[in-house]
Design a binder for these strands. Structure first.
Lengths: 134, 134
DNA sequence: ATAAACCTTCCACCACACGGGAAGGTCAAG
DNA sequence: CTTGACCTTCCCGTGTGGTGGAAGGTTTAT
C-alpha cells in the first residue's frame, strides 16, 4: 500500500506520516522500484497507536521512547507506567498554573466591572501594577 | 538612562527590552550621539506594566493592542475588559481540555496498575487503541 | 499521447517569547 | 594606553507538531 492509501485508512495525512518517519516514530518503509513508499497493512495499527497515545496526552518524544522499547522486543509497560505518572504530575502542575492565572484574571474582571473608564489615565487602571499584588 | 540601567531597574533583560521595541511594544527611544538607547525614567513604568499584564495571562499581541489604544490617548478600559473576558473563556477551555486529558491518564494509570507486564505483546496493552474509548 | 492524480525530496514557515553569541563601536578607570 | 564593561546590529536557535509549496518523477485512465 502506498502512502496515500495508508493516509486514507488511518486518517493521518501523508505529510504527517513522512514527518513521523523523519522524526523516528516510524521505521523506513520498503520502497517500490520507482521509489514510492510501500507499506504493510500493519502500518495502520502503528499510526493508530501513535494517535491514541497522543490523545492520552503523551508527547511524540515519549511515544518515540515507548515504541523504541517495544521495537526492541521488550514489554514497555513499566516504562509506560512511569511515563503516565510523570505526565500526571506535569499535568497537575500546568492545571494549577492555569487556575492561578484564571484567579488573577477574575480579580481583574471584577475590578473592571466597578471601574470608571474615564479613570484610565496613563496606563490602564485595571491592569496597572499593584492591581493583583494586593 | 541607558539600556543596562533600565534593565537593572525593571528586572527585564536588555535583550528583552530590544525585543519588545522591535515588536512594537515600545516606541523607538532617543539615542545618545554615539547611538546608545537613552531612556526616560518613565520607561520603567511601561516595562512593569507589560510584565504585569503578562503575568495576568495576556499575550504580547494583546498587550500591544492595549498599549496602542493607550498611546493614542484613548482609555483602553473597555477593550481591556473585553480582552479579559476573552482570555477567561480561552483559559476555561484549556483547563477543561487538560482536565479531560488528566482523566484519560488516570484511567490508564489504573489499567497499568492491574496489568501484567508480560501481557504487553506487540504494542503496549495499556496504551492500545480502545483502552480509553470505552 | 496526454492529462490528472499521485508520488518524491527539500526548504520554508506558523505561533510564542525570547536567549546566545559574533563582530564591532564607545566610554570610564587605572 | 589598555583593559574591561557596556553598547550596537545581526542572525541563528530554542521547542512542539506539524503545514504549504516548489520542482520534478510516476502511474493510471482515457
Amino acid at each position: 500500500m502506498r502512502i496515500g492509501e495508508l493516509a486514507a485508512r488511518s486518517g493521518v495525512t501523508a505529510k504527517t506520516i513522512r514527518f513521523w518517519e523523519a522524526t523516528g516514530l516510524l521505521a523506513d518503509p520498503d520502497r517500490t522500484p520507482s521509489g514510492y513508499r510501500d507499506y504493510e497493512p500493519e502500518a495502520v495499527d502503528r499510526l493508530e497507536f501513535i494517535r491514541h497515545a497522543q490523545t492520552a496526552g503523551l508527547t511524540l518524544a515519549e511515544i518515540r521512547q515507548v515504541l523504541a522499547i517495544s521495537d526492541e522486543g521488550n514489554p514497555p509497560c513499566h516504562h509506560v507506567t512511569e511515563l503516565i505518572h510523570l505526565r500526571l504530575t506535569d499535568l497537575d502542575r500546568r492545571i494549577r498554573d492555569l487556575t492561578a492565572t484564571r484567579q488573577r484574571l477574575r480579580h481583574l474582571a471584577e475590578r473592571a466591572a466597578i471601574q470608571d473608564p474615564a479613570a484610565c489615565a496613563g496606563y490602564c487602571v485595571i491592569l496597572r501594577p499593584g492591581a493583583t499584588t494586593s
